[in-house]
Write a protein that binds this DNA or RNA. Structure first.
Lengths: 137, 137
DNA sequence: TATTAGATGATAATGATTATTATTTGAGAT
DNA sequence: ATCTCAAATAATAATCATTATCATCTAATA
């Protein structure tokens, strides 16, 4: 039961469980490809016509702060949101605004191994994400 | 002579050589770390007080289109600009808005080698950029 | 030097995001 | 179950980066 899980995630983080938060989180999960705030609002309004735009932005911010979501930078500067999962990379279409997830454990090992040996002078690495640009066929 | 180079780059691309374009390109080169449009405007106004904001954005766009600049997505969604050079990656500070270039030929070879063998199903790779998040020490 | 497509400056418009504030509500205490 | 109140929400206005418009100007070529 998905809703249960969402409720759990929220209360684990000490966030109040509100219908808006549940709606927003499930919207992002349902919509599944890196929706913008606008996409989310549009989707939610079907079942939740009174939700306020400001609320959506505030909820998104607090979900990001609590690591339930990640912000994804898009080419145009409009922010998009992604449910946090195991670390993954992104495929950016060079021609459209399509963004897909890309997971590759072997690749991660390769890169992590490389930096474990080499490191970066004056920099402590927390996270590495690839932006792979190209075209879908 | 830097200005000469800039003039050359512009005319090579078939762009008219205007004082505004020269000023903007040299500002980005001088400023050196991924300035925003606002940073650029502020810097240019010293020597070029009448330049118009709209012009700066339009020039930036055309420089990006002609591969003389790259747009760098920043955490806040404000675009930043980077003179195009050999391909390079970015170090993002997790605490501030500092962004530094990171070049690493060995790493590029490693990654290119990996994808040459493996590829990505349904995707033609044009370019790979790493976003390395962490802290400067 | 004259011509003109393209560039610029001034200004207004847009659109995503943030701030404000009065009202409502979730969740722990009674 | 009800009370309490900090936190969340809805409605609205405000902000701020970016884009559009358009009259004027100018770089580049003849």
């Amino acid at each position: 039961m998905e809703i249960k899980e969402i409720v759990n995630k929220l209360s684990e983080k000490g966030l109040r469980v509100t219908p808006q938060r549940i709606a927003i989180l499930s919207a992002i999960i349902k919509l599944n490809n890196h929706p913008t705030a606008e996409n989310i609002i549009e989707y939610i309004k079907k079942n939740h016509p009174n939700i306020s735009v400001g609320t959506v932005y505030k909820v998104l911010d607090s979900l990001v702060e609590n690591n339930l979501l990640k912000k994804v930078k898009s080419e145009s500067g409009i922010m998009r949101y992604d449910p946090t999962q195991s670390n993954h990379h992104h495929l950016y279409c060079a021609q459209t605004d399509r963004i897909e997830d890309y997971e590759d454990e072997k690749l991660d090992e390769l890169i992590t191994g490389y930096f474990n040996q080499k490191g970066i002078r004056n920099f402590k690495i927390q996270n590495i994400q690839l932006q792979i640009t190209g075209t879908f066929k």
